[in-house]
Design a protein around this nucleic acid. Structure first.
Lengths: 118, 118
DNA sequence: TCCTTAGTTCAAAAGTTATTGAACAATTGG
DNA sequence: CCAATTGTTCAATAACTTTTGAACTAAGGA
C-alpha cells in the first residue's frame, strides 16, 4: 500500500505553483513547514475542511510532488518534500513559506498560533 | 484611460501563485523578465494565443499585481512589477523565473531562443 | 474624415476544480 | 470476530477558468 508520487525530475513548476495557489493547500504547506521533521497525519488538518475535502487537497499536493505520504497503519504520515523541491526549484519553497508566514488571510491550523509550544 | 492595478499591499500570495500556475502566463512572465526594462506591448505575445485570449491572461497578471500596464496611444506597455513583488514576497519572483528558465515544457515567445540578440 | 492598428468587452461553450455525502477499504485493539 | 479509527473512492453538483468569435472603443496617420 504505497501511494503514487512523482520523481523529483517529474515535478513541474506550473503544476506546483497552481497547487500552491489555493489558500487551503498553502495553509497545509505552511503548517507542514512549521513542523518540519514531525510527520503529521491527515486529521491534523481537519480545521481546514471536511475529511473528504482534505483527502482531495492532500492528494493534489502529493501528486504535484509537494508532499510525501507514507502509509503507517491506518495513518498517512505526511511530510514536505523540501529537499526535492529545493533541488528542482532553488529558493522557491523558502520564499513561499516566508511569504505565507505573514499572510493574515490564510486559514490557520489548530485554531491557535503556530508559535505555541508543541 | 488608466487600467486598474492592486497596490503593493493588496497583492495576495495565493492569487499570485495561482496566476503563475498557468503555462501561458508563466511564459509571459518569463519573457518579460528576459526583457526587463523594455516595455512590451501585447502583440509581442501573440505566439502564445489569440489576441482575445492574451487580453484575458494579461488582465489576470495585471489584476494579480504581477504586471503593470500603461496606456500609451493605442498600446498597452507591459512591465513586470518586480520591485513590488520583491518587497512583498522576497525571493519569490527570482526563484520562479530561474526555475522557469530551464523548463522545456513552457511555451516560447518569438519562436526563437530568448538569448537571440535583440 | 476614413482607415488602420491595438486592444477590450461580451456572451457562449468547453473544460477544470472544489465541495459534499454516502459507501467503501484497511488496520488496530478489545 | 467485532468495532472503532483513518482515510479513500465515487458520483453529483456547484463554481470557477479558459477559449472562442463577433462586436466594439480609442488613438493615430493618410
Amino acid at each position: 500500500m504505497t501511494l503514487p508520487h512523482p520523481n523529483t525530475d517529474q515535478i513541474s513548476l506550473p503544476i506546483v505553483l497552481g497547487v500552491l495557489g489555493d489558500p487551503t493547500r498553502l495553509a497545509i504547506v505552511r503548517y507542514l513547514a512549521s513542523k518540519e521533521g514531525v510527520p503529521l497525519n491527515c486529521s491534523q488538518f481537519l480545521d481546514l475542511g471536511s475529511k473528504t475535502n482534505l483527502s482531495y487537497h492532500l492528494a493534489k499536493l502529493r501528486e504535484a510532488g509537494v508532499t510525501r505520504a507514507e502509509v503507517v497503519g491506518t495513518n498517512r504520515m505526511i511530510t514536505l518534500r523540501r529537499a526535492d523541491l529545493d533541488a528542482r526549484f532553488p529558493g522557491l519553497l523558502d520564499s513561499v513559506i516566508a511569504a505565507s508566514a505573514d499572510d493574515p488571510a490564510l486559514p490557520a491550523v489548530g485554531g491557535h498560533d503556530l508559535e505555541v509550544t508543541a
